[in-house]
Every structure is written in structure tokens, then in C-alpha cells.
Amino acid sequence: MTDLTPLNRAPAPRDYHLSDDAWELIREATPESTRRAYQEDWKRFTDWCAEQERTPLPATGETLAQYAAHLALGEKAPATIGRAMAAIAKAHELAGAGPLDRRGVKDVLRGYRKRYAKQGGTVKRAPALTLTALRAMVATLDPDTLVGVRDRAVIVLGFAMGARRSEIAALNLADLEPHPEGLQVTVRLSKTDKDGRGRIVAVPYGSNLATCPVRAVEQWRTALAHHGRQDGPLFVRIDRHGRVGHVATGRGDTDGRITGETVANIIRRAAVAAGLDAADAFSGHSLRRGFATAAYAAPDADLVRIARHGGWKEGSAALFGYLEEVDRWRKNPAAGIGL
């Protein structure tokens, strides 16, 4: 085909058609938890538009700015407003409605962030899980119960990997490969890996039996095998009757896989049981923050290796924010000036 002369022909109707299979692949490009949050944000926006007699799709820049102000007056956190705008933008993108005019939204958010800070508002961050806190949490788990064995594996493996809660929940038994020095764990999908290239995380044996991630995972795998589970999800539900992977009709994945929210609940429950300060604020992200700060505080810390291990992008602002918590005191510029 060498003739690239444009054809003067109207587009065929199929030029704008996508099959159900194509739409399903587009849907899978966005994590389920994000889709669920976007759906809720979109519903709230459309409900507001109906009340205000505004058009949600396509939305004008003025409608977006007014909605952002509406959320601000409702004292929503700036990050919550930002996510709502992302959900609206995604809906427009999927509908082929073109890019949004966000100029007014940016000004509203800029003014609101200043007001939010003046009024004492702060960005809520999950506390970093220290090794001392980790040991205290693990000590509350009963090693003679399935729940105790599973929860210990979730907590110590997640910490050792510096993993996101979604990454922990998504692990399969087939993603674990024994190694003479520990485990090689394949993370197939992550927030910063949009194309699903995956990464391999080396998890070494721990020096403390109670918090060794390799031994904790092996104990859990043995328990799964005892219940006839040789493949499928690594971490599954356990109901109050002790049934492994049981899913109530119409609820959850049919394979019994836990969710990222379950990971957060496991961590929070153990933190409360251990009597930790601000235990209710602990979440799945506490493992990730805790790993970053603990690894950076080690004598032979290597920023590049820490970032690759935890799947942070090069130059990640989030990672540097965690490390600042260590350097704030370890490398304090005011400490050695003779005050």
C-alpha cells in the first residue's frame, strides 16, 4: 500500500463502534476499587446536576467550578474534590465528550487549599508502621487459628514487600517462587504499572521468627493446602465458621479472594488489639510507609533499590515524602550549628 492520498469519503457507522469485548478491556484498564469510587463520585455529581438543573455531560467549566465549590463548602478534603474531578473527567473520556475545562476548578481548589490550611485542616496520612509496632501487632494474632495465620502473613509479607494493599490482595499462589534466600514474589499489576509488565520482589528470610515473612507465608500456604487449595488467590476470606474462601451468594469474587479493603481492616484490627496510638488511623498504606522509612533508616540504605523494591516511580514525590520523616531528625540542619 503506497498510495496515501486521503479519501474524500464520509466515515462509516462502524467507525464509531466498539464491541463489548473492547469495552470490557477498557473497563479492566482501571482497577476495580478506582472504578467503584469513580462510579460513586459520578452519581453524586449527576444527582447534584439534577438538583441544580445543570447538564452533567458534557459539563461546562462553570458547572465544574461550581460543583468544586459545593464540595468545598461541604468541607470535603481537597484530595476528595480532586478525585471527584478525576471521576467526571473519566466519564467524559469514555463518552467521547472531549476534554474538560478545568481552569475554574483549579482556581477554586487553590483558594480552598489556602482556606483549608488556615482553618487547621491537614492531609490525613496513614501512620507509618514501625518494626516495634509490627511486632506488637503480630503478637496479638493467634497462631493456632486460620485467621491468625493468614493475618500474620498479610502483615509481614506486605511490610517486607513495601506493597500496596491492592497488590497484596491480588497475589496468587503461583506468584510465589521459593528461593534459597527466601521468596521471589511476582507483582503482576500495580498502580504505577499501567501496562501490566509486572515486577519481581525478592523477600528474604527474617531474623525474627515471629515476623519472618517467608516462614509466615509458608505456614499459611500449608494451611491452604490442608483445605485443598493448591492454586488461585494467595489470601482468601475466612468466615466466622472457619470456612476458607467461602463467599456468600452474590457477594465478592467467586474465588474467595480478599479485597484491598480487607487488607486495611486486618492491619487496623491488629493495631487496635496491640493498643497502638491512633490505631484507628492505621491502614494498608501503613505497611508501605513503614517499609520505606525502615529501609531508609538502615545503615546501607539505597534509594534506587528501595524505589524498585516497592514499585515507586523514579523521583516519586510520595517516596521522598516518606523519607523526609527520617531525614527530618537524622539530617537536621539545625542540629549541628551550636544552638
Rank of each mutant, 00 (worst) to 15 (best):
R197F: 12
H226C: 00
A317Y: 04
E51L: 09
N332V: 14
L141V: 08
T262F: 12
A298L: 05
A335D: 12
L109S: 15
A264V: 15
T5Q: 15
R237C: 02
A169C: 06
L18Q: 06
A139R: 01
K106D: 04
D175Y: 00
L287P: 14
V272D: 06
V214M: 07
G336M: 01
P11Q: 09
D101A: 11
D41A: 02
R251Y: 15
D21I: 00
A89K: 14
M85V: 15
A274S: 08
A298I: 06
P299G: 00
R115S: 08
G228I: 06
S207G: 00
R83L: 09
W23I: 10
G96A: 03
D15Q: 02
Y67S: 14
H241R: 14
Y112I: 03
T249I: 04
A22W: 11
T186E: 02
D41W: 08
P11I: 03
V105W: 13
G74M: 12
R330N: 08
K118S: 11
R54T: 10
R289S: 13
D15H: 06
V217Q: 05
S316G: 10
R35W: 07
C49E: 13
V147E: 02
E32R: 14
E177I: 02
A95Q: 15
G336H: 09
N332S: 12
E32D: 04
R44H: 06
T293M: 00
K191L: 03
T259M: 14
Y38M: 05
S166K: 00
E325A: 08
A91F: 05
L141A: 09
G158T: 12
I266C: 09
S316V: 10
A37S: 07
A72C: 04
T63V: 14
F159W: 10
D255C: 07
F45A: 10
V244Y: 07
V187T: 08
Y296I: 01
A295Q: 09
Q184D: 12
L18C: 02
A317T: 13
R330S: 13
H179T: 13
T30A: 01
A68Y: 11
A69R: 15
S190W: 04
L189F: 08
